Amino acid sequence: MNKSNKTPEIDPSVVTDLPADTSSNLFKQYKRSLIRFTDEAVYIYSFKEKKLIYADGWEETLGFKDDEITLQQIIRQTDASYLAFSHEINAKTIEFLLSRKTGIKDYSFTVELKKIHKDGSIVPMEAKVGILTVDQNGGVDYIIGRFRINRNIHFGIVMRYDVHGPDKEEFEKVINKAVQKFLTISGKEKEALKYVAKGYSFKEIADELGVSASAIEKRIQPLYKRFNVKNLTHLVSFAYENYILP
Score class of each variant (00 low, 15 high):
residue 166 P to E: 15
residue 178 A to S: 06
residue 197 A to M: 04
residue 184 T to H: 02
residue 174 V to Q: 07
residue 36 R to N: 07
residue 216 I to M: 05
residue 197 A to E: 02
residue 160 R to L: 00
residue 23 S to D: 13
residue 242 N to R: 05
residue 151 R to P: 05
residue 177 K to C: 12
residue 226 R to I: 09
residue 99 S to F: 00
residue 61 T to S: 10
residue 118 K to F: 06
residue 89 I to G: 01
residue 225 K to D: 08
residue 75 I to M: 03
residue 116 I to A: 03
residue 168 K to A: 11
residue 51 K to H: 04
residue 65 K to Q: 04
residue 122 I to H: 05
residue 69 I to R: 03
residue 116 I to S: 01
residue 186 S to K: 04
residue 24 S to L: 12
residue 76 R to Q: 12
residue 46 S to L: 01
residue 23 S to G: 03
residue 225 K to I: 02
residue 209 L to W: 08
residue 45 Y to N: 00
residue 202 F to V: 14
residue 8 P to V: 00
residue 23 S to H: 08
residue 37 F to N: 15
residue 244 I to L: 14
residue 226 R to N: 10
residue 68 E to W: 08
residue 120 G to H: 07
residue 199 G to Y: 06
residue 104 I to Y: 07
residue 72 Q to G: 02
residue 239 A to S: 09
residue 94 I to C: 01
residue 227 F to W: 12
residue 151 R to M: 10
residue 223 L to I: 11
residue 230 K to F: 08
residue 77 Q to K: 15
residue 225 K to T: 05
residue 10 I to D: 14
residue 58 W to E: 02
residue 50 K to G: 11
residue 217 E to K: 15
residue 33 S to Y: 13
residue 17 D to R: 07
residue 124 P to K: 12
residue 166 P to V: 11
residue 182 F to R: 05
residue 53 I to N: 06
residue 238 F to S: 00
residue 35 I to R: 13
residue 231 N to S: 13
residue 134 V to K: 15
residue 55 A to P: 00
residue 235 L to I: 09
residue 86 S to I: 04
residue 99 S to E: 06
residue 21 D to V: 06
residue 41 A to N: 09
residue 164 H to G: 12
residue 34 L to C: 15
residue 140 V to Q: 05
residue 110 T to V: 12
residue 26 L to W: 12
residue 210 G to S: 03
residue 3 K to M: 15
residue 190 K to S: 12
residue 212 S to Q: 11
residue 163 V to R: 04
residue 49 E to I: 12
residue 204 E to R: 09
residue 84 A to Q: 01
residue 201 S to D: 11
residue 74 I to N: 04
residue 144 I to Q: 11
residue 66 D to S: 07
residue 21 D to F: 02
residue 245 L to Q: 02
residue 134 V to P: 14
residue 229 V to D: 05
residue 193 L to G: 03
residue 91 A to Y: 06
residue 117 H to Q: 02
residue 26 L to Q: 13
residue 196 V to N: 08
residue 160 R to D: 00
residue 151 R to G: 09
residue 113 L to R: 11
residue 225 K to Y: 06
residue 32 R to I: 01
residue 32 R to A: 10
residue 211 V to C: 14
residue 12 P to Y: 04
residue 187 G to Q: 01
residue 15 V to D: 00
residue 150 N to Q: 10
residue 5 N to R: 05
residue 48 K to R: 13
residue 228 N to Q: 14
residue 50 K to Q: 14
residue 236 V to A: 07
residue 58 W to I: 00
residue 74 I to K: 07
residue 196 V to I: 13
residue 72 Q to V: 03
residue 103 G to K: 06
residue 39 D to M: 13
residue 241 E to S: 09
residue 151 R to N: 14
residue 127 A to R: 08
residue 145 G to L: 00
residue 229 V to Y: 07
residue 25 N to I: 09
residue 143 I to L: 09
residue 226 R to Q: 11
residue 97 L to C: 14
residue 209 L to P: 07
residue 99 S to K: 06
residue 163 V to Q: 03
residue 215 A to Q: 09
residue 159 M to C: 06
residue 144 I to N: 04
